[in-house]
C-alpha cells in the first residue's frame, strides 16, 4: 500500500514540476516579447553563452572532424570507396554531430554556469532584491538568457560544421591522401540544403532546451549550498538527456 502511495506521490510531484516548468517558460517568453526590452542584457548573454564558447567548440569540432575522417577512411577503404569520405564526414557532422555535440558542450560550459548563477543569486537574496526594486526577476534574469541561447546555438553549430569539415579535410586529404577534388566534389553532391537547415532546426531546439532547463532548475534550487550544487548537476544531466531524446524525435520527424 505504502509503495503504491509512493508511486502516486512521485507521479504527482513530477506532473506538478513539469507543469511549473511549462508555466515558467511561457512566462519567460511572454516577458521577452513585451516591453521594456532588454537588448543590453541579451547582448551580454550572447557574449557569455555564444562568444565565450567559441574556443571549446573549435577544439571539439576539429577533433570530431579529424576522428570521423580517420574512422571513415578505415571503413570506406574496405569497400574501396575512400572517394566518398568528404560526404560521409560532412553529412555526419551537419546532420547529427554538429548540433548534438555543440549543444552538449554548451550545456557543460554555459548551462551549468546559468544554473549556478541563478541559484547563487537566490541564496544571496539578489532575486528578492530585484523584486524589491520593482523589477521582475524572470524578465530580467531568465528571458535574456533564453533569447541569447536561441540566437547563439545555431551560430555555434554553423561554426562547428565548418571547423569539423576542416578537421576532416586535414586528416582525410592532407594526411591520408584522399583526392581533394573527390573529397569536396562528393561533399557538395551529397549535401542538400535540407541537411543544413535540419541541423540548424536541431540547434535552435537545443538552445531552447538548454536555457529552459538550466534556468528553471536554477530558479527552483533550494536556497542552500547543497541545493545549488545538486541543482547544477541535475541541470547538466537533465539537459544532456533531453538533448539526446529530442534529437531522436526531431531526426525521425525530419527524415
Amino acid at each position: 500500500m505504502e509503495a503504491i502511495a509512493a508511486i502516486g506521490r512521485g507521479t504527482l510531484g513530477t506532473v506538478q514540476t513539469l507543469g511549473n516548468a511549462g508555466l515558467f517558460i511561457l512566462y519567460a517568453l511572454w516577458a521577452a516579447v513585451t516591453p521594456p526590452y532588454r537588448f543590453k542584457r541579451v547582448i551580454a548573454e550572447i557574449e557569455f553563452i555564444g562568444a565565450k564558447s567559441f574556443l571549446i567548440i573549435f577544439v571539439t569540432a576539429l577533433f570530431t572532424g579529424m576522428v570521423l575522417a580517420l574512422q571513415g577512411y578505415y571503413t570506406l577503404s574496405k569497400f574501396g570507396a575512400q572517394g566518398v569520405l568528404g560526404s560521409a564526414v560532412a553529412l555526419s557532422i551537419i546532420r547529427e554531430l554538429g548540433p548534438v555535440l555543440c549543444a552538449l558542450m554548451v550545456t557543460g560550459r554555459a548551462g551549468s554556469a546559468i544554473t549556478a548563477e541563478i541559484g547563487i543569486m537566490k541564496i544571496t537574496d539578489q532575486v528578492p532584491a530585484l523584486e524589491m526594486m520593482a523589477i521582475e526577476p524572470i524578465k530580467f534574469i531568465v528571458s535574456p538568457k533564453i533569447i541569447a541561447a536561441l540566437i547563439s546555438l545555431p551560430l555555434l553549430t554553423a561554426f562547428f560544421d565548418l571547423v569539423g569539415i576542416l578537421g576532416g579535410y586535414l586528416v582525410g586529404v592532407l594526411m591520408l591522401g584522399v583526392n581533394e577534388g573527390s573529397f569536396f566534389g562528393e561533399m557538395i553532391r551529397a549535401t542538400e540544403f535540407a541537411d543544413i537547415y535540419g541541423g540548424l532546426i536541431k540547434a535552435v531546439a537545443f538552445g531552447f532546451l538548454i536555457s529552459w532547463i538550466s534556468c528553471f532548475i536554477g530558479y527552483n534550487a533550494k536556497a542552500t549550498t547543497e541545493g545549488v550544487s545538486s541543482a547544477t548537476t541535475n541541470a547538466v544531466v537533465m539537459t544532456s538527456l533531453s538533448i539526446l531524446v529530442i534529437d531522436y524525435v526531431i531526426t525521425s520527424v525530419l527524415l
Partner: peptide, 16 residues
C-alpha cells in the same frame, strides 16, 4: 508600491 519602499537585506544582496 515597492517604488516607495526600500529594503536592506541581511546579506546586503548587492549584485556581485
Amino acid at each position: 508600491l515597492r517604488k516607495k519602499m526600500g529594503m536592506l537585506f541581511q546579506g546586503s544582496a548587492l549584485f556581485n
